[in-house]
Amino acid sequence: MVSQTEKPPKFSVKDLTIRYGTTPALSGVSLEVEENEIFGIIGPANAGKTSFLKVLNRMDTMTEGMSYEGEIEFNGINTRKLRNLYALRSRIGVVFPLPVGLPLSIYDNVAFSPRLRGINEKKRLDQIVEQSLTRAALWDEVKDRLDSLGSLLSGGQQQRLTIARALSQDPDILFLDEFSIAVDPVTTMRIEDVLVELKQEMTIILVTNLVQQARRLTRRTAFFLSGECVEVGETEAMFAGDVKDSRTSDYIEGRFG
Protein backbone atom coordinates (compact mmCIF):
# COMPACT_ATOMS: atom_id res chain seq x y z
CA MET A 1 0.00 0.00 0.00
CA VAL A 2 1.63 3.22 -1.10
CA SER A 3 0.69 6.31 0.82
CA GLN A 4 -0.89 8.86 -1.50
CA THR A 5 -0.14 11.90 0.63
CA GLU A 6 3.09 13.21 2.09
CA LYS A 7 1.90 13.09 5.68
CA PRO A 8 2.74 10.01 7.74
CA PRO A 9 -0.19 7.62 7.98
CA LYS A 10 -2.49 8.12 10.99
CA PHE A 11 -2.24 4.49 11.86
CA SER A 12 0.18 2.05 10.42
CA VAL A 13 -0.32 -1.59 11.34
CA LYS A 14 2.16 -4.34 10.52
CA ASP A 15 1.68 -8.08 11.00
CA LEU A 16 -0.84 -7.60 13.76
CA THR A 17 -2.09 -10.66 15.63
CA ILE A 18 -4.54 -10.30 18.51
CA ARG A 19 -5.15 -12.98 21.09
CA TYR A 20 -7.48 -13.56 24.02
CA GLY A 21 -5.49 -15.85 26.22
CA THR A 22 -4.00 -18.16 23.62
CA THR A 23 -6.94 -18.00 21.22
CA PRO A 24 -6.24 -15.73 18.26
CA ALA A 25 -9.03 -13.29 17.45
CA LEU A 26 -7.36 -11.69 14.46
CA SER A 27 -4.12 -12.51 12.73
CA GLY A 28 -1.69 -11.19 10.18
CA VAL A 29 -3.20 -7.75 9.57
CA SER A 30 -1.13 -5.08 7.83
CA LEU A 31 -2.73 -1.83 6.75
CA GLU A 32 -2.43 1.93 6.90
CA VAL A 33 -5.07 4.51 7.70
CA GLU A 34 -4.37 7.88 6.18
CA GLU A 35 -4.99 11.35 7.47
CA ASN A 36 -8.48 12.77 6.88
CA GLU A 37 -9.97 9.74 5.28
CA ILE A 38 -12.91 7.65 6.32
CA PHE A 39 -11.52 4.15 6.44
CA GLY A 40 -14.05 1.35 6.43
CA ILE A 41 -13.83 -2.05 8.01
CA ILE A 42 -16.54 -4.47 6.94
CA GLY A 43 -17.16 -8.09 7.76
CA PRO A 44 -19.60 -10.39 9.52
CA ALA A 45 -19.80 -10.88 13.28
CA ASN A 46 -16.73 -12.35 15.01
CA ALA A 47 -14.44 -11.18 12.25
CA GLY A 48 -12.18 -9.39 14.74
CA LYS A 49 -13.25 -5.85 13.85
CA THR A 50 -13.90 -4.66 17.39
CA SER A 51 -10.74 -6.34 18.69
CA PHE A 52 -8.83 -4.49 16.01
CA LEU A 53 -10.14 -1.11 17.23
CA LYS A 54 -9.39 -2.11 20.81
CA VAL A 55 -5.68 -2.60 20.23
CA LEU A 56 -5.42 0.58 18.18
CA ASN A 57 -6.17 2.65 21.28
CA ARG A 58 -4.42 0.10 23.47
CA MET A 59 -7.52 -0.95 25.37
CA ASP A 60 -5.89 -4.38 25.41
CA THR A 61 -4.25 -3.35 28.68
CA MET A 62 -7.70 -2.88 30.24
CA THR A 63 -9.07 -6.17 28.93
CA GLU A 64 -8.42 -9.40 30.79
CA GLY A 65 -6.26 -11.77 28.79
CA MET A 66 -5.99 -9.64 25.64
CA SER A 67 -2.61 -9.29 23.95
CA TYR A 68 -1.21 -8.49 20.54
CA GLU A 69 1.87 -9.08 18.43
CA GLY A 70 3.11 -6.93 15.58
CA GLU A 71 3.68 -3.19 15.30
CA ILE A 72 1.18 -0.35 15.52
CA GLU A 73 2.24 3.22 14.83
CA PHE A 74 0.05 6.21 15.62
CA ASN A 75 1.29 9.35 13.78
CA GLY A 76 4.56 7.48 13.35
CA ILE A 77 4.88 6.67 17.07
CA ASN A 78 5.08 3.04 18.05
CA THR A 79 2.35 2.52 20.65
CA ARG A 80 3.67 -0.68 22.14
CA LYS A 81 6.03 0.73 24.73
CA LEU A 82 4.30 4.03 25.51
CA ARG A 83 4.14 4.74 29.21
CA ASN A 84 1.05 6.94 29.34
CA LEU A 85 -1.63 5.16 27.37
CA TYR A 86 -4.28 7.43 28.93
CA ALA A 87 -2.83 10.35 26.96
CA LEU A 88 -2.92 8.24 23.80
CA ARG A 89 -6.56 7.27 24.38
CA SER A 90 -7.58 10.85 25.03
CA ARG A 91 -6.61 11.62 21.40
CA ILE A 92 -8.88 8.93 20.03
CA GLY A 93 -12.68 9.18 20.13
CA VAL A 94 -14.63 5.94 20.28
CA VAL A 95 -18.32 5.27 19.58
CA PHE A 96 -19.62 1.84 20.51
CA PRO A 97 -22.20 -0.43 18.88
CA LEU A 98 -24.52 0.03 21.83
CA PRO A 99 -24.82 3.61 23.03
CA VAL A 100 -23.39 4.34 26.45
CA GLY A 101 -24.75 7.45 28.11
CA LEU A 102 -22.86 7.74 31.38
CA PRO A 103 -25.11 8.05 34.45
CA LEU A 104 -24.20 11.72 34.70
CA SER A 105 -26.05 14.78 33.46
CA ILE A 106 -25.97 15.38 29.73
CA TYR A 107 -23.71 18.33 30.39
CA ASP A 108 -21.31 16.31 32.52
CA ASN A 109 -21.24 13.55 29.93
CA VAL A 110 -19.90 15.93 27.34
CA ALA A 111 -17.72 17.87 29.78
CA PHE A 112 -16.14 14.65 31.06
CA SER A 113 -13.24 14.54 28.66
CA PRO A 114 -12.42 18.28 28.70
CA ARG A 115 -12.33 18.10 32.50
CA LEU A 116 -9.92 15.16 32.28
CA ARG A 117 -7.70 17.41 30.22
CA GLY A 118 -7.82 20.01 32.97
CA ILE A 119 -10.33 22.40 31.43
CA ASN A 120 -12.48 23.61 34.31
CA GLU A 121 -13.43 27.12 33.26
CA LYS A 122 -17.23 27.28 33.02
CA LYS A 123 -17.37 29.42 29.88
CA ARG A 124 -14.94 27.24 28.01
CA LEU A 125 -16.80 24.08 29.06
CA ASP A 126 -20.16 25.58 28.04
CA GLN A 127 -18.69 26.32 24.66
CA ILE A 128 -17.29 22.81 24.17
CA VAL A 129 -20.53 21.20 25.32
CA GLU A 130 -22.67 23.26 22.98
CA GLN A 131 -20.33 22.81 20.06
CA SER A 132 -19.98 19.05 20.50
CA LEU A 133 -23.72 18.49 20.95
CA THR A 134 -24.48 20.68 17.95
CA ARG A 135 -22.09 18.78 15.75
CA ALA A 136 -23.56 15.49 16.90
CA ALA A 137 -27.02 16.81 15.90
CA LEU A 138 -28.34 16.58 19.44
CA TRP A 139 -28.15 20.15 20.75
CA ASP A 140 -31.64 21.24 19.73
CA GLU A 141 -33.24 18.26 21.41
CA VAL A 142 -31.46 18.56 24.75
CA LYS A 143 -30.42 22.17 25.16
CA ASP A 144 -33.23 22.83 27.64
CA ARG A 145 -32.50 19.82 29.83
CA LEU A 146 -28.75 19.57 30.07
CA ASP A 147 -29.17 18.59 33.73
CA SER A 148 -31.09 15.40 33.07
CA LEU A 149 -29.36 12.03 33.08
CA GLY A 150 -27.56 11.07 29.90
CA SER A 151 -28.18 7.41 30.61
CA LEU A 152 -31.95 7.89 30.44
CA LEU A 153 -32.08 9.36 26.92
CA SER A 154 -33.53 7.27 24.11
CA GLY A 155 -31.20 4.90 22.27
CA GLY A 156 -30.75 7.17 19.27
CA GLN A 157 -30.16 10.20 21.48
CA GLN A 158 -27.66 8.30 23.62
CA GLN A 159 -25.77 7.30 20.50
CA ARG A 160 -25.52 10.94 19.44
CA LEU A 161 -24.52 11.82 23.01
CA THR A 162 -21.73 9.27 22.73
CA ILE A 163 -20.63 10.90 19.50
CA ALA A 164 -20.76 14.34 21.14
CA ARG A 165 -18.61 12.97 23.95
CA ALA A 166 -16.10 11.59 21.48
CA LEU A 167 -16.02 14.96 19.70
CA SER A 168 -15.53 16.80 22.98
CA GLN A 169 -12.20 15.02 23.20
CA ASP A 170 -11.13 17.08 20.19
CA PRO A 171 -9.78 13.82 18.83
CA ASP A 172 -7.23 13.19 16.14
CA ILE A 173 -9.13 10.19 14.99
CA LEU A 174 -12.63 8.85 15.54
CA PHE A 175 -13.55 5.18 15.79
CA LEU A 176 -17.15 4.25 15.06
CA ASP A 177 -18.01 0.66 15.82
CA GLU A 178 -21.28 -0.34 14.13
CA PHE A 179 -22.85 2.82 15.47
CA SER A 180 -26.13 2.35 13.60
CA ILE A 181 -27.14 -0.90 15.33
CA ALA A 182 -29.13 0.88 18.02
CA VAL A 183 -30.22 3.84 15.93
CA ASP A 184 -33.20 4.40 13.66
CA PRO A 185 -32.58 4.98 9.93
CA VAL A 186 -33.30 8.71 10.07
CA THR A 187 -30.76 9.25 12.84
CA THR A 188 -28.30 7.07 10.96
CA MET A 189 -28.59 9.33 7.95
CA ARG A 190 -28.09 12.40 10.12
CA ILE A 191 -25.00 10.94 11.72
CA GLU A 192 -23.64 9.93 8.32
CA ASP A 193 -23.97 13.56 7.18
CA VAL A 194 -22.08 14.64 10.27
CA LEU A 195 -19.28 12.17 9.50
CA VAL A 196 -18.82 13.53 6.00
CA GLU A 197 -18.36 17.01 7.50
CA LEU A 198 -16.00 15.76 10.18
CA LYS A 199 -13.76 14.15 7.61
CA GLN A 200 -12.39 17.63 6.88
CA GLU A 201 -10.70 17.84 10.27
CA MET A 202 -10.14 14.31 11.47
CA THR A 203 -9.53 10.77 10.41
CA ILE A 204 -12.37 8.31 10.89
CA ILE A 205 -12.34 4.52 11.08
CA LEU A 206 -15.82 3.20 10.45
CA VAL A 207 -16.51 -0.39 11.40
CA THR A 208 -19.79 -1.45 9.92
CA ASN A 209 -21.80 -4.50 9.12
CA LEU A 210 -23.75 -2.55 6.50
CA VAL A 211 -21.77 -2.79 3.29
CA GLN A 212 -23.81 0.00 1.68
CA GLN A 213 -22.89 2.31 4.53
CA ALA A 214 -19.24 1.60 3.86
CA ARG A 215 -19.83 2.31 0.21
CA ARG A 216 -21.57 5.63 0.91
CA LEU A 217 -18.95 6.96 3.28
CA THR A 218 -15.51 5.42 2.95
CA ARG A 219 -12.68 5.97 0.56
CA ARG A 220 -10.93 2.73 1.31
CA THR A 221 -12.21 -0.42 2.97
CA ALA A 222 -10.75 -3.47 4.67
CA PHE A 223 -12.69 -6.72 4.66
CA PHE A 224 -12.28 -8.85 7.79
CA LEU A 225 -13.51 -12.41 7.96
CA SER A 226 -13.16 -14.89 10.82
CA GLY A 227 -10.07 -13.35 12.32
CA GLU A 228 -8.35 -12.59 9.06
CA CYS A 229 -7.97 -9.43 6.99
CA VAL A 230 -8.97 -10.71 3.58
CA GLU A 231 -8.09 -7.56 1.71
CA VAL A 232 -7.78 -3.78 1.76
CA GLY A 233 -8.69 -1.67 -1.24
CA GLU A 234 -10.37 1.41 -2.71
CA THR A 235 -14.01 1.13 -1.78
CA GLU A 236 -15.40 2.03 -5.18
CA ALA A 237 -13.11 -0.39 -6.96
CA MET A 238 -14.14 -3.12 -4.56
CA PHE A 239 -17.80 -2.51 -5.18
CA ALA A 240 -17.13 -2.40 -8.91
CA GLY A 241 -15.90 -5.96 -8.63
CA ASP A 242 -12.17 -5.28 -8.61
CA VAL A 243 -11.29 -7.65 -5.77
CA LYS A 244 -8.31 -9.87 -5.11
CA ASP A 245 -10.28 -12.51 -3.26
CA SER A 246 -13.62 -13.94 -4.33
CA ARG A 247 -14.85 -14.03 -0.71
CA THR A 248 -14.84 -10.23 -0.70
CA SER A 249 -17.19 -9.94 -3.64
CA ASP A 250 -19.32 -12.75 -2.22
CA TYR A 251 -19.72 -10.79 1.01
CA ILE A 252 -20.30 -7.45 -0.67
CA GLU A 253 -22.94 -8.95 -2.88
CA GLY A 254 -24.62 -10.51 0.10
CA ARG A 255 -23.97 -14.15 -0.66
CA PHE A 256 -23.05 -14.75 2.99
CA GLY A 257 -22.71 -12.83 6.23
Binding site: R89, V100, P103, R165
Partner: peptide, 25 residues
Protein backbone atom coordinates in the same frame (compact mmCIF):
# COMPACT_ATOMS: atom_id res chain seq x y z
CA UNK B 1 -18.89 -2.44 32.72
CA UNK B 2 -19.75 -0.40 29.63
CA UNK B 3 -19.57 2.81 31.71
CA UNK B 4 -16.00 2.00 32.67
CA UNK B 5 -15.01 1.25 29.09
CA UNK B 6 -16.56 4.50 27.94
CA UNK B 7 -14.45 6.41 30.45
CA UNK B 8 -11.26 4.50 29.70
CA UNK B 9 -11.76 5.15 26.01
CA UNK B 10 -11.77 8.87 26.74
CA UNK B 11 -8.41 8.51 28.42
CA UNK B 12 -9.58 8.38 32.04
CA UNK B 13 -7.41 6.38 34.42
CA UNK B 14 -8.97 3.60 36.43
CA UNK B 15 -9.09 5.83 39.49
CA UNK B 16 -10.68 8.76 37.63
CA UNK B 17 -13.30 6.35 36.35
CA UNK B 18 -13.94 4.96 39.82
CA UNK B 19 -14.12 8.41 41.41
CA UNK B 20 -16.32 10.08 38.82
CA UNK B 21 -18.62 7.32 37.64
CA UNK B 22 -18.37 4.05 39.57
CA UNK B 23 -18.31 5.20 43.20
CA UNK B 24 -21.05 7.85 42.91
CA UNK B 25 -23.33 5.16 41.54
Amino acid sequence: HAFREACWNMGATRWQTIRKVVLPN
